[in-house]
């Protein structure tokens, strides 16, 4: 399946039967994850759509676009029920875990400061009756660079934001009050471009999250303590990272920037999805397929497969085979053996 231009984000709905994808070609698509059939497209944006998210009941989905608007859509019909007009491009949208709020990250361009806006979502009626004004605005702090990505922690308690300079910040999800920040990227190597490219939360309880960055690294951070627990190192800028349920793996995606491919000596673009062991930090394997950098990865909520969207305009959906589930490190196997022996 393909978009006309490079993918910007893919998402599974909570049940995993639908995949939502957005690309730089101004139309969002919804697909059946089982067979790749397109359920429909969401038409209406005038430019690149940077981000998409769906609520946990698969009733509404939201898109954020470079046409300085965010839109709400009815998943079942594909009709646009509301449009939020903003003053700068929307880089990221995300529903809160209880579906009652939607956050949108606006870019720091066109003289705008760049901020995180939180809207209240009204599920009554035909969904068209929405409040266009944000209930909460978190402006970028003066001592911080612009926010690139953001997401909700468990129960919407915090909003976690990733910055252009590799810092990660934590804000109160209700009041928007700044709580703390940590430098997650730009400290593990000499890379100059350290922008945070993705934040995805732990599938089990959202109590920790993974970040990816242009600095070729990815980190695992605890929400409460904000400690950087693990660092996964790759050899190319990383655009996306996801945590798998069931198995203790993380999947990283990225690769040479398309514009740099011709200027670098290496012909290999490093366009593979990379699997790391979440706990042991070892790289376990890579999955080839895309012929451009990976821009986005989403893992099926049941942990049975993943979808990746590439600069090449393709979404690739992979199902994990038996060896994936059988794979265990010696220490894990021993742990399980001891556990089963004790019962």
């Amino acid at each position: 399946m393909g978009h006309e231009r490079s993918l910007t984000q893919v998402k599974y709905n909570k049940e995993g039967d639908l995949i939502l994808s957005v690309a730089k070609d101004s139309s969002a698509s919804i697909w059946y994850s089982s067979n790749g059939e397109r359920l429909g497209t969401l038409e209406g944006h005038m430019g690149t759509i940077w981000s998409i998210d769906v609520d946990s009941d698969s009733i509404l989905c939201a898109t954020g676009s470079a046409d300085v608007s965010a839109k709400l859509w009815k998943v079942s019909t594909g009709e646009c029920v509301f449009t939020y007009q903003m003053k700068s491009p929307i880089r990221r949208v995300a529903f809160s875990p209880n579906n009652k709020n939607l956050l949108a990250v606006t870019d720091k361009v066109m003289g705008q400061p760049g901020s995180i806006l939180v809207f209240d979502i009204n599920y009554e009626g035909d969904f068209t009756n929405q409040n266009a004004e944000p209930s909460l605005v978190i402006n970028t702090r003066e001592d911080a660079t612009k926010v690139t990505v953001a997401g909700w922690s468990a129960n919407g308690e915090y909003i976690i934001a990733g910055h252009d300079d590799g810092y990660i910040s934590k804000y109160d999800g209700k009041t928007g009050e700044f709580i703390q920040t940590v430098q997650a990227h730009g400290i593990h190597n000499e890379e100059k471009v350290v922008s945070v490219t993705d934040i995805q939360f732990a599938p089990e309880d959202k109590s920790y999250f993974i970040t990816s960055s242009k600095d070729k690294c990815s980190t695992l951070i605890d929400v409460e303590t904000f400690d950087v627990m693990k660092v996964y190192k790759a050899d190319a800028p990383m655009n996306t990272a996801a945590i798998t349920p069931i198995k203790n793996f993380v999947i990283l995606g990225g690769g040479q920037e398309a514009r740099n491919v011709t200027t670098t000596a290496e012909s290999q673009g490093k366009f593979e999805a990379r699997f790391y062991h979440k706990i042991f930090v070892d790289e376990i394997g890579r999955v080839k397929g895309h012929f451009g950098p990976l821009n986005t990865i989403a893992v099926h909520p049941d942990g049975t497969g993943y979808a990746s969207g590439g600069e090449d305009g393709f979404i690739r959906v992979h199902n994990f085979d038996k060896s994936y589930f059988d794979f265990e490190y010696d220490a894990e196997r021993t742990e399980r053996a001891i556990a089963s022996g004790a019962t």
């Binding site: 042991f280 220490a331 021993t334 001891i338």
Partner: peptide, 26 residues
């Protein structure tokens, strides 16, 4: 599995270190 791990640890010191590290991390 337990015994395989033990065997691997016996086999050489580097593996042993790695396994012990993994155990600790886990």
């Amino acid at each position: 599995a337990q015994f395989d791990e033990a065997d691997a640890m016996e086999a050489d010191a580097a593996t042993r270190e790695a396994i012990l590290l993994r155990r600790r991390l886990l």
